[in-house]
Design a protein around this nucleic acid. Structure first.
Lengths: 331, 331
DNA sequence: AAGGTAAAATGGAACGTTCCAAGAATAATT
DNA sequence: AATTATTCTTGGAACGTTCCATTTTACCTT
């Protein structure tokens, strides 16, 4: 029963108003769910919308009202499974807030990041949720923050920036993981993987060192690597070569742990039984591996909730540390 | 040297015009890079923009000109590594076209898909690039296509839909993979993993069967699974239990192959040496595994290029099949 | 039934840009 | 130097919505 006028000019509030027999203003009221319109009017307008196939023009609305409902999620590297997880969780929670989420990827490139964000500013986005690339300037991040534009930085801290920041409690996570290995009676423990250019790394390493220092007879080693599976494998091979007496390892994240486990398998060493392995993130795969991976879980939903809390309340509180949870499985 | 008026109303073309000593229309011309403005005017305007800190209001522009440069990339599941790869490649190529890409995730949920797309329509996006969820209605996809809205479906084909579609040549890929295994002299070959609800599955399986039928003494089996690492492991365990004489397997994709390899390692079987394994996709990790994975590479850039070709030329050609490449490594 | 009050509906202005038709300035031609 | 052709520039209207001040309608109260 739809009136087919798709080939004509686009349908506007005026058309809907005409069909419904009310004014443009009333239609606008109904569209925004105002309680100032009578039920009878609402009904008529809704029917007219259905009949005409009207679609709301959010650009026009945004221009007039000077407020947008667009939230940009600026992710450093979507091909990283944890980032993708987080992005999806953020998108879902933002949508539940009644806002529109748009996702962009900066590929860890600071220049790309500035370019994309500049373009997004032209769309008057209401908020930026940014996982900053390495070399992000604090001044740049700060000036992004404006009366009608919120900025939240996530997962990584930019020195000297004034914008609210949501982080997992990296130090606590690594501390707990290390203590758990010490509780197994292990005294030779290594920290494997991670990139010193990122703030996460230092926080996790700090937790590791803090735990180790609490007991006098603990020996530790650190082996850096690129933050991927291959890096984990290489670092673990180096570790075993240099420190054959190593009893267990704390990995920078699960992906690195996967590489570690892969190398152990090649050496006929069984994770958990022969060498303790604890990861960080708790990716979906981790619980499903042949030897389920022990890990420090960062719940993406918790991060997303903390971000949404800041968005809703427009608070300027500096740092939100999201608790993490040690999940001991078989490794 | 910037005039600080950030706390005032926002800066508009009028302000820039006043500062530059030209008309609003001239400013608009310069903004759009028109060659109808003199170099002297351009220079003055550019300087004024710098001075005033003007930022372009794309909503206002889009409303007036009735054309947007927003391209929506609607991805079925961003937590799938291949999808994330593809999304990143698409975003990059679309940006190079001078358009703005926005990424959204539907989590394989048809209802979410309709909701998100409806919301995006309110932003008057220029084009939808959709990897459709299972149960996507062809009629829904078709009516999305309008005079000013292009639609391209990627990776999956929706029966009965009229929108242009870009697919990897799944059948050819699986065919070549299977033939490569046959060339090793294998006669007992299984197809592992994949979900029958998705068009990919049937195309890849068809290629597998086609190759097997070309030689009289080939025996084949098919083991379905969920399309993840865990599924691959389960399917492979079932396969080995039921078909101990199996010599090699074609996997639905690399992720499934990872699960397969994991299970083989548990059974002390070496991929390539004991059992041939070929994947599909060529994820970054595949070349870096302890036994580098043989696989059928789907180049995400090729898919993105094909999509951009359709966007540029506004062609309505039905199906674009992107060539795939068999990469034989050690498995 | 008349007056008063609250609720509902409305027309015009405004948001910041681009389009358009037309005017001004400059260059080219005779 | 006068005319024509060409290149630049410009003010006003328009895009589709929301805001605002005002009018109309509905609902009470006495």
């Amino acid at each position: 029963m739809k009136t087919n006028n798709t080939n004509k000019q686009s349908v506007t509030v005026h058309d809907v108003a005409r069909v419904a027999g009310v004014s443009k203003s009333t239609v606008s009221l109904v569209l925004r769910g105002s309680d100032k319109a009578s039920d009878r009017a609402k009904e008529k307008v809704l029917k007219a919308i259905e009949e005409t196939g009207y679609v709301y023009n959010r650009e026009a609305a945004a221009m007039r009202s000077k407020s947008s409902d667009l939230v940009a999620i600026v992710i450093n590297d979507l091909t990283n499974p944890y980032s993708a997880n987080l992005a999806v969780a953020l998108e879902k929670h933002i949508r539940e807030l009644g806002l529109m989420a748009t996702l962009v990827n900066t590929s860890e490139n600071a220049l790309t990041q500035t370019q994309i964000v500049a373009k997004l500013q032209e769309y008057r986005v209401k908020a930026f949720i940014i996982c900053p690339t390495p070399n992000t300037q604090a001044s740049w991040l700060n000036q992004l923050q404006k009366p009608h534009t919120q900025v939240v930085s996530i997962m990584r801290q930019v020195d000297g920036s004034q914008v609210p920041c949501v982080l997992p409690n990296n130090e606590m996570g690594a501390y707990n993981a290390t203590k758990a290995l010490m509780a197994r009676g292990h005294k030779h423990i290594a920290f494997i993987g991670g990139d010193a250019a990122i703030s996460d790394y230092h926080q996790r390493l700090a937790g590791f060192n803090k735990a180790a220092k609490e007991q006098v007879d603990i020996q530790t080693w650190v082996f850096n690597s690129t933050t991927n599976r291959h890096g984990g494998r290489l670092a673990m091979s180096e570790c075993l070569a240099q420190v054959p007496q190593v009893e267990s390892v704390v990995c920078f994240n699960d992906i690195v742990a996967y590489g570690v486990i892969e190398y152990l398998a090649e050496q006929n060493l069984k994770p958990g039984a022969d060498i303790g392995v604890i990861g960080f993130d708790d990716l979906d795969d981790s619980k499903l591996m042949s030897v389920p991976l022990s890990t420090v879980k960062i719940d993406a939903n918790d991060i997303a909730k903390a971000v949404c809390h800041i968005l809703k309340n427009d608070t300027q509180e500096g740092l939100t540390q999201v608790p993490v949870e040690l999940i001991e499985r078989s490794s």
